[in-house]
Design a protein around this nucleic acid. Structure first.
Lengths: 298, 298
DNA sequence: CATCTCCATAATGATTTGGAATGGATTTTC
DNA sequence: GAAAATCCATTCCAAATCATTATGGAGATG
């Protein structure tokens, strides 16, 4: 009897979610991937852990019996990890990083909280900058690590690490006329003002390109570079915008234009030639094992 | 942090043995294999678990700290396995198997003890037969499973599973003249009577072939088919014999002829066309995960 | 100094794993 | 009741991992 801890995590996650696909999302895995991890665990234990009856998946009796053991094993492993970290020579030093407001607010907060909890010796400074500012600071070597949306041109001197992908949705206020229409086209959108960030942002380019491809002129207003501010203005009914999925709040209406929704990549960048400090290397390594995602927002 | 339970076992075993190579033997693994399992665990935990100082390998402080967690995790897994087995529909029925005296005595005893402990519902019958008898019974369908040394001809109708390999050593009594010689040749051996089992045994054939290849005539006595009996006669000083390594007891002297020591394979066989009973299938499966070896004799 | 033992590394072949695409089954919706 | 959507299994393929053999280096041994 011999299995991977990852299989245990898959099992626990699936049991908790009562769904393979949701569990797969949680673990940043595809559904077939998770399916196979569970199968491998079942093979190792020579027991069916789940009843797959049609749409519903429920733990079998054996599954229910095994769950507490799985939890204990994972807890032991977690504790062991904590202990071993505490035994290591304390990781201390300064870590300076920059992020856009949006990334910091929606993805980074829980991540950084967990990081400083694990490494209390690290003196973390976070600057909120626009992607363009961050980019420049990195090139000049005045910043170690920076989160940004994907820049239009990748700088030779910088190394980019993809962190996550984000879908931009078209949104208006609930009371906006567009919210009432059944079927929408880009032309419908174009009849109302668009509230977009500055033209050096990825977001702005994505939308402008989209409309250009469909030969539709666009009435762009540029009230702010900050997505938070744009959302507020959209909620106030001043126009429509394209906002990341996670920002769609109850005051907004997401327009049903899924085929046009562009995606943008959020990246972490650092200078190739500037050798990273210990804390920075640590953070990079740590980030690999703690991929940020929507689940940490919820 | 994510590792394979097999890596934990490797770690525990290496810690217990204070040696990678011995640990590898215990786990029926090669030394580089075990080495890499340990390395993978160290990578996952980001800690060195062993100090490799020259010949000696000792646990690091981190290793000592981790060991109790590893033991607890493995214990939990073991318990979980027990529980799941107990939940399964009771495995009951008759299991009839045959074995040579030697295999039964030296390898099977602890194995069968563990098997009946895990599956108390199974009514186990073990017959002691020679390999040839077992072979015949299997072919006639009068026996489900049989352990035997590798037969000279594989029967088409039978399926053979390799169970383990055994090295045959040349042995004499402590007081025998051969025990005193420094350098030995096969010719030296040939000057004294050989005590070997019947000519339909693998063991006999291996030795006769060996001497034939070296064009050395052999004085064979055939006092018994049973290796136990042969050993007794060798100990009494009646001649030399080739006995499995595990049989070399304190009264015997193993002759230093390693380059001539033949190996024989011990097999488990069953009839291809006779569909196996539940308990027999269970035993076959179970055997895969509980490979017999010297460690179970000790 | 030669030899032995023990562990690490390199190279290779076999097995396993993860992902995209697809299919079958069932529930939901209209 | 038909269509759509949801959910899991399967298949295929590429990439990663694993175990083995062969080899090398570093300490112990004599």
């Amino acid at each position: 009897m011999d299995f991977h801890l990852a299989a245990l995590k898959a099992f626990v996650s699936a049991a908790r979610e009562s769904s393979f696909s949701r569990a797969a999302d949680c673990l940043h895995l595809t559904q077939p991937g998770l399916s196979k991890r569970i199968r491998s665990l079942e093979d190792a234990l020579r027991v069916e852990l789940f009843d797959r009856i049609g749409r519903r998946t429920v733990l079998t009796e054996a599954g229910r019996a095994f769950l507490p053991y799985a939890l204990r094993i994972l807890a032991e492993a977690e504790q062991a990890g904590q202990l071993l970290r505490s035994l290591q020579p304390a990781q201390i030093g300064k870590l300076h990083l920059a992020t856009t407001q949006h990334i910091g607010l929606y993805y980074l907060k829980p991540l950084l909280a967990e990081f400083v909890r694990q490494y209390p010796g690290i003196d973390l400074t976070v600057d909120f900058k626009t992607s363009a500012e961050t980019h420049k600071l990195l090139c000049q070597g005045e910043l170690e690590l920076g989160f940004m949306s994907e820049p239009p041109l990748h700088e030779q001197a910088l190394e980019y690490v993809e962190v996550l992908n984000e879908r931009l949705c078209f949104a208006v206020a609930q009371q906006h006329p567009l919210a009432l229409l059944e079927a929408l086209t880009l032309q419908d959108l174009a009849r109302y003002p668009a509230l977009l960030p500055g033209s050096n942002t990825r977001c702005r380019r994505l939308i402008e390109n989209l409309f250009q491809q469909h030969a539709t002129p666009l009435d762009v207003r540029e009230p702010s570079n900050y997505l938070e501010a744009l959302r507020m203005l959209v909620e106030a009914g001043l126009g429509w915008s394209a906002l990341p999925e996670v920002m769609i709040s109850s005051g907004l209406c997401r327009l049903p234009l899924p085929q046009y929704e562009p995606a943008r990549t959020i990246m972490l960048a650092y200078h190739r030639k500037v050798s990273l400090s210990g804390p920075a290397r640590l953070f990079l390594e740590w980030l690999k094992e703690h991929p940020p995602g929507l689940h940490s927002v919820a």
